[in-house]
């Protein structure tokens, strides 16, 4: 079934589409994603970006860090703007890819109704949500996807008391043409999923976990190591859903063969945002991950 060739570091194109010296923080997970992801999209695409770190990264007048056209919209209307741009491209007879690229706040909280509408209409766009689990661009305020127990500047000292939204599951309930979860620590996996999404008609949704050094309270050099820890501890699963069929992909699929995963604490202890998390909460999280992975092993192995 799986015949698509994987991209490796050796055959990944050397052509770069973003410039150095942009405004992203040092060690930004989004920068890795953007740099490698854009290589899969190629030059013939238009980005629609709501207020987010990506807007900042793309630069202020008169210099832009990107070589692609970018349309900056409002938070609430990302998917609606992308719909309009795609309609204009169709009218002009162009095959240009329209890519909406928003943060977790712009997707799970403010932009969800426009996205839900676009999903229902089955618009032919790619929607990428980079999930850094809070409103990082404005200074780490809690968002819908912020995990329980995490500290932000707008949560109590005990951390966020509510459970974060499972955004990919909300999207999956709309039956999109293609849905995938990715991680900033596996940029080649993201690259290949984008290549696949380009071939599919309809709304393609990619959810990418993106470690954020200032927001998560990690050292700058730990960005990639942390994203990997999230996948290897089983907290964040990489999967894709195509035609209603879910399967684990890449690194998460390899984890199926292992009898045990890394303990969740290894991931939590690396970040200062979880320093208010008690032992009982960490144990509950571990139990939850164990239950989910027991289910995966029954289903996929």
């Amino acid at each position: 079934m799986k015949t698509t060739a994987r991209t490796t570091v050796l055959n990944l194109t050397e052509e770069e589409f973003i410039h150095p010296g942009n405004r992203a923080c040092s060690g930004c997970g989004l920068s890795i994603l953007y740099r490698v992801g854009v290589k899969a999209l190629g030059r013939d695409c238009i980005f629609v970006v709501p207020p987010s770190c990506l807007t900042v990264m793309q630069g202020l007048y008169p210099i832009a860090a990107t070589q692609m056209p970018v349309l900056n919209g409002t938070f609430a209307s990302t998917a609606a703007i992308a719909t309009g741009v795609k309609a204009a491209m169709r009218r002009l007879g162009r095959e240009t890819q329209v890519v909406a690229w928003a943060g977790d706040g712009g997707t799970s909280d403010i932009g969800i109704q426009a996205l839900s509408g676009a999903l229902e209409r089955g618009e032919d766009i790619i929607y990428i949500c980079y999930d850094n689990e809070a409103y990082m661009n404005t200074g780490v305020q809690r968002s819908g996807t912020t995990p329980q127990g995490s500290l932000t500047t707008t949560t109590p000292f005990s951390g966020k008391s509510e459970v974060g939204k499972d955004l990919p599951a909300i999207i999956a309930a709309h039956n999109p043409a293609y849905l995938a979860t990715c991680s900033a620590s596996y940029p080649l996996d993201f690259h290949d999923k984008l290549l696949k999404a380009k071939q599919i008609k309809g709304l393609k949704y990619l959810h990418v976990q993106t470690p954020c050094p200032p927001g998560w309270g990690i050292e700058e050099h730990m960005t990639v190591a942390l994203g990997r820890a999230a996948v290897e501890t089983g907290l964040f699963d990489l999967y894709e859903i195509e035609n209603g069929r879910m399967q684990l992909t890449g690194p998460s699929q390899q984890l199926l063969a292992k009898p045990t995963l890394r303990p969740v604490r290894e991931y939590l202890e690396l970040q200062t945002r979880f320093k208010a998390l008690g032992d009982a909460q960490a144990d509950a999280l571990q139990a939850q991950v164990d239950r989910r992975w027991a289910g995966y092993r029954d289903r996929f192995r």
Binding site: H19, P20, G21, L60, I63, A64
Partner: peptide
């Protein structure tokens, strides 16, 4: 018309 030109160093010499 105001359009940014693409180039390095949007944030200066980082």
């Amino acid at each position: 018309t105001s359009a940014s030109t693409s180039g390095p160093g949007d944030a200066g010499r980082t």
